[in-house]
Structure formats: structure tokens, C-alpha cells
Nucleic acid binder design. Sequence first.
DNA 1: ATGAAAGCGCTAACAG
DNA 2: CTGTTAGCGCTTTCAT
Lengths: 323, 323
Amino acid sequence: MPYSRRSPTISDVAREASVSIATVSRVLNAKAPVAGNTAERVRAAIEQLEFVPRAAARILASRHTDTVGLLLPEIGESFFSPLLRGIEAEARAAGFDLLIHTTSHIPHASSPAAGRSLAEHNTDGLVVFTQSIDLNELKRLHRINFPVVLTFQRAPKSIAIPTVIIENQRGARELVDHLIAVHTCRRIAFLQGPDGNEDSQQREHGYRLSLRAHHIPEDPTLIGLGGFNQEDAQRTVHDWLSAHLVFDAVFAADDGSAAGAYLALRQAGKRIPQDVKVVGYDDSPIAQFLTPPLTTVRVPIEQVGRAAVSQLVRQIRGRRANG
Amino acid sequence: MPYSRRSPTISDVAREASVSIATVSRVLNAKAPVAGNTAERVRAAIEQLEFVPRAAARILASRHTDTVGLLLPEIGESFFSPLLRGIEAEARAAGFDLLIHTTSHIPHASSPAAGRSLAEHNTDGLVVFTQSIDLNELKRLHRINFPVVLTFQRAPKSIAIPTVIIENQRGARELVDHLIAVHTCRRIAFLQGPDGNEDSQQREHGYRLSLRAHHIPEDPTLIGLGGFNQEDAQRTVHDWLSAHLVFDAVFAADDGSAAGAYLALRQAGKRIPQDVKVVGYDDSPIAQFLTPPLTTVRVPIEQVGRAAVSQLVRQIRGRRANG
DNA sequence: ATGAAAGCGCTAACAG
DNA sequence: CTGTTAGCGCTTTCAT
């Protein structure tokens, strides 16, 4: 066994197979014709040397990576599960690899990673989850014509970037209508998502429309932060309860915050749904495990992922076709 | 506005700042001294041209990427949330970027992505989640001395690869002891994890040890597939019930399958815990939302992530130091 | 169908 | 402190 020598390069393969590196490259990429037995020799050499082309060299020379990137603020929330499934499936189907990159909430200007750009980090295009990219960076990408698609977020109107968004307002409105009409709720609290989240804003708008349609005055004290997570929601509802606010229903902007509401309510001895009704949004896995099962609105998250990649790939191909 | 011209390179910056490309490189990497005002000019040029170094070129030239990769079989399971948090935090702390790559369960030998290697896909090292890599590929990586650390899985003993694993057997044993001693359970079913999963195997072993210690005979019919997911577990428990198997407790190898057991039990009109007790493992978020709250065992998943990266970084640095 | 040669954009000695 | 000069390993014309 020789000492761990450097891993083989295309030249090693070429030498081993007694051909030029160009030929090796051709069999690697199958883009140009290679004679049957020549190709066979090359393949044998590749196998024998366990040659694996260096991605960086390939990318540098070819100027494309055949991979799409996904930017996520923080991975792991159950919401991402179907989104990723969709993105992964579609990317693979289109012959692209997928690289996921989580963005830090706190920009470390001084970190060694600063100055590197995600976009150029070896991808041909980017699917960007809402709020996980800086506006200036987005503008820059758009300016250099780098393929990007935004999900769950509209592009600032100054820059035309494709977007995949979902319907929220109507779903929210119907949910609240139901609370009012069927369950005779009149004091309905709303748990907002993270600051600036468009889905949450639209759900809130649907909520307001419903109240208005039923001549129920809005009460600002009944609107608080759910933050799309259990902890924030739990705290907010707990605070409401401590302040002796009166409400007969909680509309949580997502299921995670609905779960937080359940916890706070239970802890205060409130019964669900007898004392307070709780509804959520997204139809995430948690919904069916809550007791009673959470009323929620189904969102086609996986399809958003697929649509986003499909649109992205179209952009990438377009660029390659032209120049 | 000029037509979308090629994005600027280091030479453009050098020209703009009237310095050599080496100097630009130096201010980029801050590895060698550069005079204050020279650096200033270069920075201005970079900003003005919106120069972003091409990752591929950097990697090719420097032979390292400053990023670590993570291989996951399928992302999004709640289990991964804390794991990712740990990995991300530690990688960032060490000055590394993180790229997540999900591996397909079904190898597409013919897919365009086939033949590319994840390992060399622009990372300096890999954290590999259990069962998400092929044994041959693992051997190859080891042979070429590529830094890898395995999590939740021991390395095949023929290859010495660092590993971060957790304690399972004792936790499982104590959990089952408790079921027997405190709750006088005698017929305890076990829901296994995916085939070959080591954590599950060890938990199962702890379960068997406990039974044996209490002179309770093992009943193979009471062991079925939970698959670390709700659906499989639900189906298995449903089948047990349909077959009129008698059991007074279910030990699910993870919380997800415990949730599935809840569903099947409820559906059959069984009360938890009066008729059947259910316990899980991992202490995942779902545990506290089940009714009654699931008894489970806390697993330091996030710490596994941190430890894995920390070990990986050590390997990478070691390689760089020597050569 | 195959080879030769010119880069891709950057880092890393090596001089000075 | 700064510039020059080789490459890094691969793809891609352009010939043949």
C-alpha cells in the first residue's frame, strides 16, 4: 500500500488509458462522440484509479455547476420538510444537484465566511426562502443576471424576480368566518408571524376582513406575536391571560404558534375548545397530534418547492441558451 | 446601463486599483500584510465593481474550501432540527461554511448527478448522518484520506473513521425497568427503527436486557417495525390490535413512532395510559404535545452535531498542518 | 473520433 | 510591502 498519494486527476486517467485528457473529458461528459473501445479503456482507467473529477475545476472551466442552491434562514422547522421534499424532487428530476445553505440571522461582518457569496458558492441558481437574503445582495444578484426565485415572498417591485407565493388571505378569512358564524366567537385574538413575513401579513389581513364583514370591531390588544414558533406564542398568550384579556378564540398565523397557544391555555386551566377555540394555518404534522386536533388550513408547501425549482431551471436554461 | 457584462474578476479589481492581482488576493484573504492605503484603494475598487471572488477558482487554487458538508438521508424530520443547530453553530464558530446535501434513497445510476461525488463537492470534510452513505464510497473517502466523521453510527471495523455516537442501551433499559417495576407491565411491545439503525438496535438490546432481568419471556410477536416514523408505527400497532395481540405497553424506538402508536391505539378505542402505556425515545418536540405527554428519554442531539463538527475540523486542520 | 493548447479566476511561492 | 509567475484540474475550441 503506497502512502496516501494525491488523488488522481484527469491526466492520470489519460495516461493510464493512453489517450488525451480531452478524450477523458469527453467520456466523462458524454457530450461528444468517443469510439466504443476507447471509451471502454477510459472507463476502466477511471474505475481502476478511482478517479473522481474535482468539482471546482469543472466549474471553473465550464462556468456552470449543475446545482441549484437553497437559502433558508434556519433549517429544521417542520414547515421546511415538505418544502425540501418538493425542491429536492424537482431538482433531481431536472438533473440538478441541490445544495442547502442556511443563512445566519446575525451577519458576522468579521467572520471568515463574510465576503463569500452564497450565490456564487457553486450554484447556477438560487431558491430563496422568504427573508433569508439581504436586499442588497438580492439586488446585486439580479443586476448580474444571476437566476433566483423567491418563495413565500414577493420581490420588491423595483426588481423583477420570479416568485412563488401562496394564497393566504382567502383561507384566513374563511377560517375566521367559520369561527364567527358557526362558533359564535366575537373576541378573536391573532398571533402574528415574524416581523415582515408576508404570509402572516396576508393572513392577518384576511382576519381583519372577516371581522369587518361581521361588524366586529378590531381590538389591537388582541393581536400579538406568535413568531411562527411555539415559545413566542406561548409567552404572548400567557401574557394575555395574565392581563385578564378576554377572548373566545385564537387564530394563530401558523400551527407552531397554535401549539404554543394550546400550552399556555392549558397551563391557565382553560379548556379547548369549550373556553377558547384555537385555529392555525399550514396543516403541519403537529396539527393532528394536538388534543383536540387543531383546525388548520392546508397549504401546498411541497408544490411551492417544485414550482420554484421548475421556474429556476427554466431561467438557468434560458441563460445558457442565449449567453 | 451597459448590457449585462461578465461579472468582474480579480484582474478587473487589480486594474481599477492599479495594483497586482496578488495584492488584491492579499486584501481578500488578509493573510499577508498590505499597506493601509493600498488596501483602501483595493477595497474601494472591490466595492465599486461589486467584485465577488469565484468560489470555484479559489478552491481550485487553494485546494481547500473552508466548508464542511453534511450528508443526510432525508431532511426535515424533526430529529434533524437540533442536530443541524449544533452542526451549524459549531461550523460557523470554527470559521467554516456549511453545505447540506441530502442523499437519495434510491440511487439513480443513470442520473446526471451520478458520478459526481458529494465529498469532493466543494467541501473540506463531511459529517455523515447514519446510513446516508454507501459503504464503498465511505471506504474510498477513507482511502484517499478525506476527513469524515460518522454520527449515530459506528464505523465498520475494517476502517478507522471517527464517530460520534450516543448512549442508548442504558436509557432504554431504565425506561423499560420503570414500565415493569412501577407500572407492573408484563407484556411490552417494541417498535423498531429502520433496518440496520444502530440506535434502534441498542435500544432494543436495552429492552431485552430489562425483560430478562425481570424474568419476562421475550415474545417475538410483540416486536414490529416502527421505522422511526408515524405511519409505519401506526400500521404496525394497528395490525397488532387487529390480530388481538395482548400488550400493556409499547416501547417505541423513537418519539415519531410513539406518536403513531398513540394514533392507532386511540383509533381502536384504547386509553393511554390506562389500557396501554406508551414510551418513546429522543424527547423530540412532539412529545409534549401528545396527550398524555409522552414519556421519553432525552438525547443530546445538538451536542452530537457540535462534537461531530469539532472533531471534523480537527481532522481538517491536521491535514493542512502536515500536508 | 482524437489531440493540442488555451484558458477559467484565483492562490502561493519567490523575488525584490 | 508588492509584483511576477506558475500552476490548481478541468472544459473547450480548433485542428487534424
